[in-house]
């Protein structure tokens, strides 16, 4: 039997601090076994949502469920099944990294000592060093190792890779995949598109304390426009007015015709037909990245050049 009860579910969650509305009707559902990307700009309410889910803060209104239970009333029992990495990792400066790992492990449901030793090696952490002598990245590693070594059903990771170098980020992604293969559910809050794109099965994007969109990556992509850049020998016929085309720009240096536009997924085929008729010299179709999804949800629609640039930026960042 497959367990279909959501691991995390919030409905219409609001949280008000004084005059500030940090959460404003936030809905989030994380299903068992998935890596769920939780995206939003700084200050959009990601950490507050996580704190409510963990029962550290009480929602002003709305529902929050963790493993089907009420996290505010039942936090310690529910926490037995999860491990958490806070956005700002704070440890005891006078203790060593190894001591902190043990202390963090002691309040988790259980620790797999072999996996811990393996992780210490993979993340190249010196556990005999004092926390006060660690760099920010190394402090982050301590918290990550503690969480990844835990015998947990759920990992809640709040911007876990800030401060890690690209190599360690690779190691982190590999570890998260391994944990997912073990059947662990992961809530991964981040504002790094590349990371979420590389790991997440499903994504929720929030803005100003409210869920803007959520779904699988394929889902979200199908709702977003691809960027097309085509160089043709002749001027494509009626392209500017074709169904599904927007942001059309054309110029024609050196006897060729250079067309840039965005296209919705349903009309891609017919547009390619028109380009083909005009003799394609080069053609790039860039599928929507999480970046463009993100920007679409946050800013004005990016023009094709910018979207293409953002795309390449993500590629290198990954």
């Amino acid at each position: 039997m497959i367990d279909t009860q959501p691991v995390i579910r919030t409905e219409g969650l609001t949280k008000v601090f004084g005059k500030v509305r940090a959460l404003d009707g936030l809905d989030l559902t994380v299903r068992p076994g998935e890596v769920h990307g939780f995206l939003g700009p700084n200050g959009s309410g990601k950490s507050t949502t996580i704190r409510v889910i963990l029962g550290l803060m009480k929602a002003t209104s709305g529902r929050a469920e963790l493993f089907g239970g009420d996290p505010w009333r039942d936090a310690p029992r529910l926490h037995r099944r999860l491990a958490y990495v806070a956005g700002d990792v704070a440890l005891w400066p006078a203790l060593t990294g190894g001591q902190c790992l043990d202390i963090l492990g002691a309040t988790q449901g259980g620790v797999d000592e072999r996996r811990r030793a393996d992780l210490v090696e993979r993340f190249e952490l010196d556990p005999t060093k004092r926390v006060r002598d660690y760099s920010k990245g190394n402090r982050q590693k301590v918290a990550l190792i503690a969480a990844l070594a835990a015998d947990a059903d759920l990992l809640v990771l709040d911007e876990p890779t800030s401060g890690l170098d690209p190599l360690m980020e690779q190691a982190f992604q590999q570890c998260v995949r391994e944990r997912r293969d073990d059947g662990v559910t992961v809530l991964l809050s981040s504002h790094m598109m590349g990371e979420v794109e590389a790991l997440a099965d499903r994504v929720s994007i929030i803005r100003r304390g409210r869920t803007v969109t959520s779904g699988t990556l394929a889902d979200l992509r199908s709702r977003t426009r691809s960027v097309v850049h085509a160089v043709t020998a002749q001027k494509p016929d009626g392209l500017a007015d074709a169904d599904g085309v927007a942001d059309y720009k054309q110029d024609g240096p050196h006897g060729q015709v250079d067309s840039r536009f965005t296209i919705d997924p349903d009309h891609l085929d017919s547009v390619i037909g028109r380009l083909h008729a005009a003799e394609i010299r080069t053609l790039t179709v860039t599928p929507p990245s999480l970046d463009s999804l993100f920007l679409r949800n946050y800013g004005p629609t990016p023009d094709p050049d910018e979207a293409a640039r953002d795309e390449s930026h993500t590629e290198t960042a990954r």
């Binding site: 926490h79 806070a86 990792v89 440890l91 988790q108 918290a143």
Partner: peptide
């Protein structure tokens, strides 16, 4: 920020 981490376990 240490208390937050402390209370995210079974304590």
């Amino acid at each position: 920020g240490r208390l937050e981490t402390r209370l995210s376990g079974t304590l």
